[in-house]
């Protein structure tokens, strides 16, 4: 019993992080048609910031999370201003916006990842924080994983609440359903777009900060998370934050159990299998009506 619980919990813990990473990307894509392939790179930046703060200035990683979020939020505003705003303004159609922002994201990935390599080298980095095991219901978990899970879920739920109950969230949802309609009732894209883009990067950065407590980090750690985020978006449905949370947790579980029953080196195969299966059978996501 303890073993199965542990397996399920492992899956949920990874899944919580997946959800957090995917949510930002999903909002950006749903709202602006920006599929930012460099999303994982900003997660990596969040991880490195946290690692630096902890190892150089001895700052508690958890206390540092809000700083990571704020730094990446403003970084996101800058990136939006410098790159994506121009694309949105000069492209003749949404398909062109999508194609060009993919390429810019690709360029950003190269830029950011190699900047990190230049700054910190290719070596694995890490630190030990709350690595002691905690026992819950006969299952043992590293404390930092539980913490990461808790924060990931809390941040995801906070975002859901924000979308559901605040004026800002309502504007974002209105915008996704009907861009022209929302503009008619006075929703201002010039504010909404950069803010949502920044928020997406802030979420990715926080996920990176949480991951740095659990795993070793490298400049190339972000890439797989970008792919995973897209898989989660596919599972949960485009533009749906709640779908993302469910999809992320589900994917975490599928990976954990799948690896247990087959082989750990098949993890990528498993998530790809899920991805392609869902794309073929339910292209609008598992939870679409």
């Amino acid at each position: 019993m303890g073993f199965w619980l542990e397996l399920a919990a492992t899956g949920l813990i990874t899944g919580g992080i997946y959800a957090l990473v995917a949510m930002g990307l999903n909002l950006q894509y749903g709202l602006m048609r920006i599929m930012n392939i460099s999303h994982g790179e900003f997660l990596m930046l969040g991880a490195y910031l946290t690692w630096l703060a902890h190892t150089v200035f001895d700052i508690n990683p958890v206390a540092f999370l809000p700083v990571v979020a704020i730094v990446l939020f403003f970084g996101g505003l800058a990136v939006y201003r410098l790159c994506f705003r121009r694309i949105a303004r000069t492209s003749p159609s949404v398909d062109v916006i999508e194609a060009r922002s993919l390429l810019v994201g690709f360029g950003l990935m190269y830029l950011v990842q190699n900047a990190a390599l230049l700054a910190w080298g290719a070596d694995m980095r890490g630190y030990s924080y709350l690595a002691d095991a905690v026992e819950i219901g006969g299952a043992r978990f590293a404390a930092n994983r539980l913490l990461a899970f808790g924060f990931a879920i809390a941040a995801s739920l906070a975002l859901l609440a924000l979308l559901r109950w605040t004026i800002f969230g309502k504007a974002v949802r209105a915008m996704m359903q009907s861009p022209t309609g929302a503009q008619l009732v006075g929703i201002d894209t010039a504010v909404l777009h950069p803010v949502v883009f920044g928020a997406g990067l802030a979420l990715a950065g926080m996920a990176g900060g949480l991951l740095s407590m659990v795993y070793e980090i490298t400049p190339s750690m972000g890439e797989p998370y970008t792919v995973t985020a897209l898989i989660v978006i596919t599972l949960g449905g485009l533009g749906s934050a709640a779908g993302c949370l469910a999809g992320g947790l589900l994917l975490g579980l599928v990976e954990a159990f799948g690896m247990h029953f087959t082989n750990p080196s098949l993890k990528t195969l498993l998530s790809y299998g899920v991805f392609i299966g869902v794309l073929l059978a339910r292209p609008k996501g598992l939870f679409a009506r």
Binding site: M35, L102, S265, T268, I276, L280
Partner: peptide, 28 residues
């Protein structure tokens, strides 16, 4: 055949991970 009927962004990200997928499969 499996993914080309989808929007461009899905295609890009799927192919993004394809190298990894094949590499892992062959390693395995």
């Amino acid at each position: 055949a499996a993914v080309l009927h989808l929007r461009g962004a899905y295609f890009a990200v799927l192919t993004f991970g394809l190298g990894e997928l094949v590499r892992h499969s062959i390693t395995y």
